[in-house]
Write a protein that binds this DNA or RNA. Structure first.
Lengths: 201, 201
DNA sequence: TGTACATCAGTGAACGCGCGTTCACTGATGTAC
DNA sequence: TGTACATCAGTGAACGCGCGTTCACTGATGTAC
């Protein structure tokens, strides 16, 4: 029984989210069905409709929660990163999050998402703002902070997906962390040269 | 009728691949069902089983074809890239491929893939070897070519996905191309400094 | 060139499944007096 | 404090769907003599 005192007139909305998360963590793949969530929450198949308009709404809520957790996870890795090492630590945390919650990460990013969910859009914006903030702090001299932030995000995001999809060795956490750090350092060392590089183009 | 003279005792195997590709191009999302492919190929629902062991096998074949096409597309963008501009052009081509064939690209990467399909593994290896080759040619002085190649691939791959998932503006091809170029240049300018950066860590 | 036969690539009915969603309902909770 | 009633969060039967896969089959093609 996943049942607890919080529902049968309680917080089924939250219980659904929790059930969905459990399913994602366990299954690792698969696509989160409303019925499976209801089953897991110990409730009839149609009960979730009291709280979510449809399947999409549930998935978006789960994804949004994932974004919030990711942000938290990154902040935990380093509250106010300001050196290459700090940023590398955050990057490692990003990739680790993806590898530890593969199904959730896919739900957040890989799924063809509906762009109308404001909850989801807001959560995404928060992440990207967070990355921008780090880059701004770490590179006060750089003019186009947005461009550099995008580059950093893309690099880390790409590393996450390539590892997730088995294109890069993930046999130990160390091997992954080393690779992520090496990639970030490559980018970092060049940051001051960014403007010239773009200008010279 | 997608039907042509190549089957009803012809090349249904290829016809299935073609049908699958058409479905991916049209639908944009969704997950490629065997039945839909058969329908599109103008053939009974069970006919594809003569050529593919199961749904997985078909999807893997489609993905493998996608890898080959991607490689071709990149090679077309620039046969033997050897300057930052060349590499940037290839990067732009990579991202453009993803945006022009979103469903195919997702089938290639985002789907939780079975690692046992040698066709798929081989195709992946070919891509990564291709990237390594470019990096090797463009940076003869760099020692750890593999590390740099991974960084480049991850950066470009991440850009592809962030655009694909609506996290970055894709309103015009130019805006996308400019962003990709800027990101690649950031990386490029730093390449000679890579070893020092890693050593200094 | 013609016949007999094996092979091979299709057919189509059938299976059991899980899904999203609707609907009329029920029974517990909260509220007004 | 007690009763009457509205609201609200669940139930469970039912719908129609598309799916992957099996099976026994058929009929065209290719081969041996």
């Amino acid at each position: 029984m996943a049942q607890n005192s919080t529902y049968h007139h309680g917080d089924l909305r939250a219980a659904c989210l929790r059930a969905a998360r459990e399913l994602l963590e366990e299954d690792g793949s698969a696509g989160l069905s409303l019925r499976a969530v209801a089953r897991r929450a110990g409730v009839s198949a149609t009960a979730p409709y009291r709280h979510y308009a449809d399947r999409e709404a549930l998935v978006s809520a789960v994804a949004a929660e994932g974004y919030r957790e990711l942000a938290e996870h990154l902040a935990t890795a380093h509250p106010v990163p300001s050196t290459p090492d700090d940023l590398a630590a955050v990057a490692v945390a990003y990739v680790r999050f993806a590898l530890e919650h593969p199904a959730l990460f896919r739900a957040m990013f890989a799924e063809p998402c509906d762009p109308t969910s404001e909850e989801r859009v807001a959560a995404t914006a928060a992440i990207s703002e967070y990355v921008r903030g780090i880059v701004r702090d770490a590179f006060p001299g750089v003019e186009d902070t947005d461009a550099l932030a995008t580059t950093v995000w893309a690099l880390v995001h790409g590393l996450a997906f390539l590892h997730l999809d088995g294109k890069l060795d993930t046999s130990t956490p160390e091997v992954v962390a080393d690779r992520v750090r090496a990639s970030v350092f490559a980018l970092f060392a060049v940051a001051p040269a960014l403007r010239e590089a773009i200008a010279a183009r």
